[in-house]
Design a protein around this nucleic acid. Structure first.
Length: 591
RNA sequence: GCGUUCGUAGCUCAGCUGGAUAGAGCGACGGACUUCGAAUCCGUAGGCCGCAGGUUCGAGUCCUGCCGGACGCACCA
């Protein structure tokens, strides 16, 4: 079914064309995009508002005149309403044309569709293959708060794109080689004495991270440490069996631990790429580009690209000794990915500090002649800071991902106990864990990706306001009402839902908000911005909360009223479940 | 210095391609539990939208300059 806003845009457009004809304007062209639809500031003003300013000049009429003329001719076509999916009345209010939707039709539509668990999905991206790269951890230390933002952004965006019809492939490039991991190895050789994570009772990635930190100590004791790390890297690249064995052991520890964190965070990947397998890719491409004159060899022997014309300066693509650097690898990886799975779009979820890198990368691929280079997209997100300042490894102000989730879960468990909900929720540990994830994920997604954000531990732990737990709570309340009905409470079972019983001014704001789910999902997908959906989820929860306070659901004099309201609660639950799922906020039947 | 980006209520943030009286949440203050779970709800206070120009019928939104913050400007990743 056509979206209600689009349908009314079409109607308005037809009327505007009629006016243009009457005025004898020959070169009048109009697309639906030229018509702006907005939500009137007050509900009394209608459900959709169309400002007419834009057409005033061409028609040589005041916006108000245009509005009233359209409204009048719409009156003459009243019988058309019967044929429309979204009937309604058009009214001129000053320079605005406002639509009042026929409420019973809208309610009927909502009730018959919202129960479908797939409702809200759209087809805007259907048939499109979208690859999304995110997380991409280093294997020398555990994940921290910044990774959590990256992970949840990538996971949520993947789910949203899928809901918008795309075929999605989630990929993760594990940075498992390089001098950083050699430092952990070196420190382990110096202080590890062959111990294992089990010996020290540490999660395996934390164990590796501990030695990475210990490298700082090693540097103080051994001024040659940095150089030794480089030597170790060279041995690794030469395939020294002992070095490889150690690398593999430590790498497995790190990766195993990181995977464990993914499971806890409930994010997953369809494909893993490992840097030790990909780091040599791209060299051939760069050399071919050199032959074709896309790149040039500098006096220093390295291969360069000149991007001065774009204001991006000059950039090395391959070292003079022929070895790859970061960007060489990314060139090769992108090509390899497109060959194995010809995507229509590849989205890199990577922090904003790498904007320059991706500009260069995309330009290089374009100049190499890959037409799909224009479909590469860097979803740049801002850094996560703390109220106390920036996270710094050296200052020990990094918030560890596992520790944070533990702490949130612990506090949620305390809260459950204090509220006396222990018996009602059953498995406290499990529910507390879900609340922790809801709190964390919602907090991270609520803010537009591009912005740097402040992670306020105190506020993220707050269970009131614009938070994940609030949304979970409203979902649990809706579930609770439905559960009570299933257990035989109330008289809804004796009635049948009637759309006209849900069309009052008290119901309408909630109904209208619920109807917006499909367009919100579409908007989030197009903008690659889960925060739009997060704001919507909060609006639904908040409107539901106000509505059920004033409107008893289970028992009413008229059983039909109970049945109708119960159906609306079902729609609320369905919409909250869908939004929660897309936001990686676990839905809870009880909390 | 150059580039990118941000600057909206005490705090954290919304405000879509310019459009109707700039909105939430937190915090503050005042109310609401014999009634589907008060982790809730209702109300009040709080803003020269960084500053100054410009474009427009109309600017928080676009352009220019300035001020302030963040990030980048490696043969690191």
């Amino acid at each position: 079914m056509e979206h209600y806003i689009d349908q009314w845009k079409t109607i308005i457009a037809a009327h505007l064309r009629t006016i243009a004809d009457k005025k004898g304007i020959v070169d009048f062209s109009l697309t639906l995009n030229d018509i702006i639809a907005e939500k009137p500031p007050k509900p009394e003003l209608g459900d959709i508002g169309f400002p007419m300013f834009a057409f005033a000049k061409q028609f040589r009429l005041s916006p108000a005149q245009i509005a009233s003329e359209v409204a009048q001719s719409e009156q003459l076509l009243k019988d058309e309403n019967e044929k429309r999916d979204w009937p309604g009345n058009l009214k001129a209010v000053g320079p605005y044309l406002n639509v009042y939707l026929e409420r019973t039709r809208a309610v009927t539509f909502l009730l018959s569709n919202a129960a479908n668990p797939d409702w809200g999905s759209s087809a805007v991206f259907s048939g499109r293959k979208v690859m999304i790269e995110f997380s991409c951890p280093n294997t020398n230390k555990p994940l921290h708060l910044g990774h959590l933002r990256n992970n949840v952004l990538g996971e949520s965006l993947s789910r949203i794109m899928k809901a918008a019809g795309a075929e999605v492939k989630k990929v993760n490039l594990i940075n498992d080689r390089g001098v950083h991991i050699c430092k952990s190895m070196l420190a382990y050789l110096a202080y590890g004495e062959g111990r294992t994570p089990e010996d020290e009772g540490l999660k395996s990635d934390h164990f590796v991270g501990k030695y990475y930190v210990l490298f700082n100590k090693l540097k103080e004791e051994d001024p040659q440490a940095e150089q030794k790390a480089q030597e170790l890297l060279q041995k690794w690249e030469a395939g020294d069996p002992e070095v490889i064995a150690l690398w593999k052991k430590m790498n497995d520890w790190a990766v195993d631990g990181i995977m464990e964190t993914y499971r806890r965070q409930q994010v997953s990947f369809d494909e893993y790429h490992f840097e030790h397998e990909t780091y040599k890719l791209g060299k051939k491409e760069v050399l071919e580009g050199l032959e074709r004159g896309v790149f040039y060899r500098g006096e220093d022997g390295a291969i360069w690209i000149d991007l001065e014309d774009l204001g991006l300066g000059k950039k090395v693509l391959l070292r003079k000794d022929g070895t790859s650097i970061y960007i060489t690898q990314d060139i090769g990886t992108a090509i390899m990915r497109h060959e194995s799975w010809p995507f229509d779009q590849l989205i890199y979820v990577v922090a904003s500090e790498q904007q320059y890198h991706f500009k260069v990368l995309f330009e290089v691929l374009k100049r190499l002649g890959y037409d799909w280079a224009s479909s590469l997209y860097h979803l740049s997100y801002g850094l996560v800071n703390l109220p106390t300042g920036r996270m710094k490894t050296r200052e020990g102000t990094v918030v560890d991902a596992d520790d944070l989730i533990d702490e949130l879960a612990r506090l949620a468990a305390v809260e459950i106990a204090e509220k006396g909900r222990a018996d009602a929720v059953g498995d406290i540990q499990s529910v507390a864990g879900q609340i922790a994830l809801g709190a964390l994920h919602y907090y991270l997604l609520q803010i537009s990706p591009a912005k740097d954000m402040l992670y306020n531990p105190e506020q993220s732990l707050s269970f009131t306001g614009d938070t994940g737990p609030y949304i979970q709570y409203m979902g649990a309340r809706a579930s609770s009402i439905l559960r009570k009905h299933d257990q035989g409470e109330g008289n809804a079972a004796q009635g049948i839902p009637k759309a006209n019983l849900l069309s009052s001014d008290a119901d309408w704001p909630l109904v209208r908000t619920l109807m917006e789910l499909p367009s919100i999902i579409e908007e989030s997908a197009k903008g690659k911005d889960p925060s739009i959906l997060a704001g919507y989820a909060h609006a639904v929860a908040s409107e539901f909360s106000a509505w059920y306070r004033d409107n008893p659901v289970l028992i009413n004099e008229d059983p039909n009223l109970s049945a109708s309201r119960l159906a609306l609660v079902r729609a609320v639950k369905s919409v909250l479940m869908r939004a929660s799922e897309l936001l990686c906020v676990p839905f809870l039947e009880a909390m």
